[in-house]
Write a protein that binds this DNA or RNA. Structure first.
Lengths: 199, 199
DNA sequence: TACTTTTGCTAACAGTGTTAGGGAGATAAA
DNA sequence: TTTATCTCCCTAACACTGTTAGCAAAAGTA
């Protein structure tokens, strides 16, 4: 009775093909160029088959946003765990965030809706919460170490995130109008200042 | 021979009607809901008439991005000119930027392509340059006053802009998931830290 | 073999930006 | 005044988009 198992396996395979096709189209010509018909064409199935696997186009894109958050979470935790000192942790996480956004531009765009319609949904993803926890823990550790009782870690996290996200989204929509080297310098300067204000 | 004058006047009137219709549609249901056909319907002309006044849809949206930059420039200069002390100027400009983004969300979205396709063009607008000059002048003044020769004003401007833009774009795509009061606190904290690092 | 379920297709609906081509009216020249 | 030109603006189409209804063929079950 492995029939239904095989069916499930085959169905999963088609689903993966859909995601793979969508990803390739996005990498080649950007998310705007991704259409249901082009995906159908790539996987050699007709259009309605896609709707057997995903409720709508948004659901397909959301899948990549989720993947993005998972990957970012992993890399942020790895960066933090490489250091003991909270200041070093914060610096490492800033670099990791920057690195992730540079190497996963397509996913980052989806995660925060840069230069594209859709994805207010992605902002409500539970993976966001974990990202916040990872960074906030280091900020709290630093506050304790610096014997600063006046620091609101949640507030400081949002500051951290704003700088990072601002820099990245300007870079993404600006098509490297500002050169890459300056961007990295701005990041380093901003994070150095951020850390200094936590001491 | 006021005939051609009248014609030009009427033509300009239709152009204004197009912009007005586009603006009203955007305010009601967001930029995604703005379509050439809906505009045509609103101005009670057929679709191709719109293409007599604008090269394409992008050109219509770009008009609002330009208006946005002009308004922002004006408000930033006003904010700066209210104070003599460069630190006060920077704080005032940060508040002005924040205020502008809050009260002109639709324009801000267009200016920096938040949550929508299009508008890599708007990033190349000359109005951007002026904005940079306004802020940079205050940063330079502050560097001189603080006798700091190590400050790269251009770099600091980008830091300033990143914090502002990051905070605002998170707020816009996040549909006020994070509450408004915290956002203002984050802004004040970030700018206070920014200014502190210029002393 | 007959029945049921699953699968995946064609074709359509309603919308998008954009443009080719032509008809009617206003202006200018005869 | 008649004829020619020119400007204005419309209808209709093209090539797309996301999404879905309905049906035919294949696969599995009795």
């Amino acid at each position: 009775m492995g029939i239904i198992e095989r069916r499930l396996r085959q169905k999963e395979e088609v689903k993966m093909d859909i995601l793979k096709a969508a990803w390739e189209l996005a990498k080649k010509d950007g998310w705007q160029a991704v259409s249901i018909r082009k995906i159908a064409d790539a996987i050699e199935y007709s259009v309605p088959v896609i709707y057997d696997h995903f409720e709508n186009k948004e659901a397909i894109l959301l899948e990549f946003a989720k993947l993005g958050f998972e990957k970012l979470n992993k890399q942020m935790e790895m960066a933090r765990n490489q250091y003991e000192d909270p200041a070093d942790q914060i610096k490492a996480m800033a670099d990791a965030y920057w690195e992730f956004a540079l190497n996963n531009t397509e996913k980052y765009q989806l995660m925060y809706g840069i230069g594209m319609a859709c994805c207010d949904v992605s902002m409500a993803l539970p993976e966001q919460q974990k990202l916040m926890d990872t960074v906030t823990s280091a900020i709290e550790a630093m506050a304790i170490k610096s014997k600063r009782t006046d620091i609101n870690a949640c507030l400081k996290y949002h500051t951290f995130w704003s700088v990072m996200h601002g820099l990245i989204s300007i870079k993404i929509v600006g098509n490297s109008a500002v050169d890459a080297q300056l961007n990295k310098m701005v990041l380093d300067d901003a994070i150095a200042g951020f850390i200094k204000n936590l001491r």
